[in-house]
């Protein structure tokens, strides 16, 4: 014996397609918020992820400093030690790795099913790409800016102005790289592709970005590659801002910067390049996500 159902919600008349703009904004917010909640929950991973930049800075930096002789660019006559030079590059490294790994969490979600819940919601799918990009941006910014506390240990003086200028610069780099990561993730169906991305994209991007060595006086082919790396245009401003008002000889800092045909690029232009790169990548990601089977 079956019971007749209680009256269900009345079916609305066939109206125009649902307005999903408000819903999409909410979705972007909640996807961003979830990322941050998980980031905060996984605090130990946060601490562990600082180990890599610290390792580079302290071990690699000291080791290489010692190996570079007296007459080198970073010898005692140069005015700036290798570790000091490297320091902003390590901040950039933290941003690079966090941004791309963070965006890769999309692939993780896809593998473990949570992405389905989001894709099935009555929202525009662009919210997934945008929300994730913003989530990674925030995480990468935090990871990078935290390293500013190490400044006194490497002999770099930070002023309030420096720190304030770093925030938008870190944001721009984080955004550019996160968007790149989201675009990659939107094309990857499984975690297997991850290894490929790591070795063929991330590591080259990192090595060619000027984080570890100056981009001046390089062999021709390498000069070209480094100018093609979007990360270079993000790391150069970081270096110039951190080192220029820090008690280190200004001329030296300028000499070590990124130049194109001998021209030093203004920081706003460099930031603009990274922003445009990010926007293009985000656009690609949005299109990829909106394709329905």
């Amino acid at each position: 014996m079956k019971v007749a159902p209680v009256s269900s919600a009345a079916a609305p008349a066939q109206a125009a397609p649902a307005d999903t703009r408000m819903a999409t904004l909410r979705a972007i917010y909640i996807i961003w918020y979830r990322d941050l909640l998980r980031y905060w929950r996984d605090r130990w991973r946060l601490v562990a992820s600082l180990a890599q930049p610290l390792l580079f800075l302290i071990v690699f930096g000291s080791g290489l400093s010692s190996a570079l002789g007296r007459g080198s660019l970073f010898g005692t006559s140069g005015g700036i030690s290798y570790i000091q030079f490297m320091y902003p590059g390590i901040i950039g490294m933290a941003i690079l790795f966090t941004a791309i790994f963070g965006a890769m969490s999309i692939v993780w979600d896809r593998e473990f099913g949570f992405l389905k819940e989001v894709l099935v919601a009555p929202i525009d799918r662009s919210a997934v790409a945008i929300g994730k990009a913003l989530g990674s941006t925030t995480q990468a910014m935090i990871q990078g800016l935290i390293l500013l506390v190490l400044a006194p240990f490497v002999g770099v003086k930070l002023s309030v102005l420096t720190v304030l200028t770093m925030i938008p610069l870190a944001a721009v780099l984080a955004f550019g790289l996160s968007s790149f990561g989201v675009a990659l993730a939107s094309a990857m169906k499984s975690l297997q592709g991850f290894q490929v991305v790591m070795n063929f994209l991330m590591m080259p991007m990192f090595f060619l970005s000027g984080a570890l060595f100056p981009l001046t006086g390089l062999p021709g082919w390498m000069t070209v590659l480094t100018r093609l790396d979007p990360a270079s245009y993000g790391i150069d401003p970081l270096r110039r801002v951190v080192l220029s008002n820090s008690g280190l000889p200004g001329a030296v800092v300028d000499r070590l910067g990124l130049t194109i045909n001998g021209q030093v690029l203004p920081i706003p232009l460099e930031a603009g390049i990274v922003l445009v790169f990010g926007a293009v990548m985000l656009g690609i990601a949005v299109v990829m996500f909106q394709r329905r089977d």
Binding site: A11, G113, V120, A121
Partner: peptide, 16 residues
Amino acid sequence: AGVRQRIGLVFQDPSL
């Protein structure tokens, strides 16, 4: 999107 607002879904594989 209008349909999805009016339906609930429970998939075969967990999506939590």
